[in-house]
Nucleic acid binder design. Sequence first.
DNA 1: CGCATTGCCGAAACCGGTTTCGGGGTTTCT
DNA 2: AGAAACCCCGAAACCGGTTTCGGCAATGCG
Lengths: 373, 373
Amino acid sequence: MRSDVKPDRRSRDNARVTITDLSQALSLTKGTVSRALNGYPDISETTRIRVIRAAQAMGYRPMSQAQAIKTGRSCSLGLVIELSEHDAHAPFLAEFLAGLTQAASAEGWTLTIATSESEGDTLRIMRDLILHRKADGFILPRVLWDDPRIAFLDRENAPYICYGRSKNHADTSYFDALSEKSMAEAVTWLAQLGHERIAYIGSASHYAYSHLRRDGYRAGLIQEGLDFDPALMIEEVLDPEEAAKATRQLLAMEQPPTAILCATDTLARGVYDVAHALDLKIGSDLSIIGYDGSPEAQAMWPRLATFAVDNRKAGAALGAMLMARVRDLNAPLQQDLIAAEFRPGGSTGRPDKTSEELAHHVIRLSADTIRND
Amino acid sequence: MRSDVKPDRRSRDNARVTITDLSQALSLTKGTVSRALNGYPDISETTRIRVIRAAQAMGYRPMSQAQAIKTGRSCSLGLVIELSEHDAHAPFLAEFLAGLTQAASAEGWTLTIATSESEGDTLRIMRDLILHRKADGFILPRVLWDDPRIAFLDRENAPYICYGRSKNHADTSYFDALSEKSMAEAVTWLAQLGHERIAYIGSASHYAYSHLRRDGYRAGLIQEGLDFDPALMIEEVLDPEEAAKATRQLLAMEQPPTAILCATDTLARGVYDVAHALDLKIGSDLSIIGYDGSPEAQAMWPRLATFAVDNRKAGAALGAMLMARVRDLNAPLQQDLIAAEFRPGGSTGRPDKTSEELAHHVIRLSADTIRND
DNA sequence: CGCATTGCCGAAACCGGTTTCGGGGTTTCT
DNA sequence: AGAAACCCCGAAACCGGTTTCGGCAATGCG
């Protein structure tokens, strides 16, 4: 009773209106209609508006597939997600996709997404998508400091927009959050609460953002007149487990930090784990700030102070930029930045203990640490 | 030096191999090659394998766009994500997409995704995608108990597969996790730890899964010989805030539950919040179990015990099912179920306090509760 | 007033495929 | 041996668009 009704009527009766329908209604040829709609100069203004009017009235919208075989443009944005990454795209993805598809569908475009297992895989897939006209260009999420995708797409002469600033970002079109500014803000926030020893746990340096955030941290220290202690900065930290290890290392110092700034919320999870294990009260014994505004931050207790990036807006901006670039690859580069919004949480507060008191506390509980390690 | 090299060579020199190339190489006509590849019966077996061999050797793969305009099939799976939902798709999305695109690209298909702001919007978008051949069929995520998309697609005679079991799931093709079994397991787990009063916080009943999970909870109680107390079951809980309210209500009972089972991890967040506010020790004063295996569960402390669904596998299965269905809409329905894997965490344990002791504890701290409400 | 432009549109080829139609060559049957 | 039935494949139309080419009419210019 369900799917076996009308077994052969694959072509729906409420069919799409084609360019032929439109041309017949107007008593023009397909070619003329096509040129009118595509802004060719050899069509009089009067017939042009007549065609456009009729097109709107009849609800005509060209079938992009048919266009693609002749023009080579399929009106679709490509997004290849690499799955092998340590920190999953999970949290930011949904909002990001929302922005992208919103921008795309506003102009009748679609989003083609694919996943890959490795870097080489990504390049192969992108070539394939371009070759088969499944994507006219690409959004590059999670740009690396030295990103092979950029070199590849330059070589292939394919349009793309970066989400993030790579090493050579001056030569690329990009959209990014000013995470370096956020990191400096975080330092200021902590310094104003009275923290003097503020540590930084950074992520893998092949990510473009890690350079920026690290620099932002250091800029913040300078701005607040705090000394930079290299021992307080641990980088190349990939996941919560490694962040936990880094945290233990920091807290084992003679003068441990009273606040820890993390490049991502995910890393902050590791800091939380250690704080819980050492029975440190987060927000007083130890202050923590993350970055990303991810759902994880909402799930932590106390709430992780973090910087929320509007990923939907980012997606929309990137989509619009890419469409413009596809339309004209020789247009000037587009570069845009937004500021992330600080979202306070219970994870920061005035330091309850001095650095020395904290050290004593940790030593007292070191037995637990050994057990956990 | 970057994008302005080779300004006009839009058609790459490493061009795609078309069916014409192939037919010329074989000294056959396009038509014959096409029929050979598409399994027409009027092609001799010898030439068929000759064509197929050559196609592989030359790396020919038909351009799906060109096929689409004649056949009406674009070889792409449609996925429309509704954004207005209370509980975002965020956590499960990335893995789910991975599975989908993996299944799709294995057969040269792609995934077209779109987002919508409302239910009506979703239907419009789906019709549009079908009409413009941007999707041959749809994966329906987060199926509702009485889902308008199902009725709509039936009416449109378009292929689809449900992720979840709706009211009439017997009549649909679906893939789903056996969440009712998981809920029963959860009850058993808690009962074996010594819990006798186990509450359930369920989500909005328009979701298909809430019926199943609720029934699973009750089945678990029966199986363990525990009484069902209607006061211990609160449904239609939409978000963590409402879950927090429900938790306070449960704990304010004369005989409060010593364990709370939540239909989703997100709801468990609200339970955690209240537990923290009331200074209840999670995993001893109060045991909590969620469902979904989301990253949030990893971010909570102690780790939320939950049931992890392999969303990648689900995506792959759904993709394969949909492709089969697009190829033959009259094929028999496909229905498949997997079990979620229990992932223990520190959030469960033997009840440290009896229900009565818990009640006293809560009363003592009720002042805080009032302040928070 | 005549000729060269220009503006505007129809006709037709084209893109990369699919599908229908028809016909030539074998085989089978009587 | 001749007719009927198959088995294959080429030829050509088609899908829904785009783009080139050429020609007709109206204009510009001397």
